[in-house]
């Protein structure tokens, strides 16, 4: 009889061990899902780009994490101007900041009239120039 109880406790032992592991795996899985949804739900502060020195004024506001500037139609902010390269510059939101990065454009990207070579933090009211096109940047506070 004692042996049967012993066996039952042994089975409970296994249940406890696997209960522990299953619980750990379950919460890990749940974490993963919430992490996924929170990443999905994460929104960058809206950034507004306005071209100020061409004939047709162009203003757009973006709420996603990445904005591509260039002459090509596939850019998120296409500019019809010869001095702008097809893929000219990229704005991206990382570490609670908007960053601008030159994509090896022919005529260069300038932030407040300084040519940028590395990814640089961009602030509200900064002036961005791609080739000969001036862009006023507004970032939602």
């Amino acid at each position: 009889m004692a042996a049967v109880f012993f066996l039952i406790i042994r089975i409970l032992l296994i249940v406890a061990l696997y209960g522990f592991l299953a619980w750990a795996l379950y919460t890990l899985y749940r974490d993963l899902r919430t992490a996924g949804t929170s990443v999905q739900a994460r929104r960058a502060p809206a950034i507004t780009l306005a071209i100020t020195n061409t004939l047709e004024e162009q203003t757009r506001t973006f709420t996603n994490m990445e904005v591509l500037i260039g002459r090509s139609q596939s850019s998120s902010f296409p500019i019809r101007n010869e001095t702008v390269s097809a893929n000219h510059a990229r704005l991206s939101y990382r570490q609670s900041q908007w960053w601008v990065e030159d994509l090896h454009s022919t005529n260069g990207t300038f932030l407040n009239e300084e040519r940028i070579t590395t990814p640089t933090v961009i602030m509200n009211q900064d002036d961005l120039r791609c080739g000969q096109v001036n862009i006023q940047v507004k970032i939602e506070e």
Binding site: A2, I9, L12, L13, G19, F20, W23, A24
Partner: peptide, 28 residues
């Protein structure tokens, strides 16, 4: 998780206590 870990180790300790009884088939 904490409770399950404690349960596992406690059961293990209980089993070790009674193992001699089972091994010798007697409560002596």
């Amino acid at each position: 998780m904490l409770q399950l870990a404690v349960a596992f180790v406690s059961l293990y300790a209980v089993l070790l206590t009674f193992a001699p009884v089972i091994k010798l088939h007697s409560w002596q």
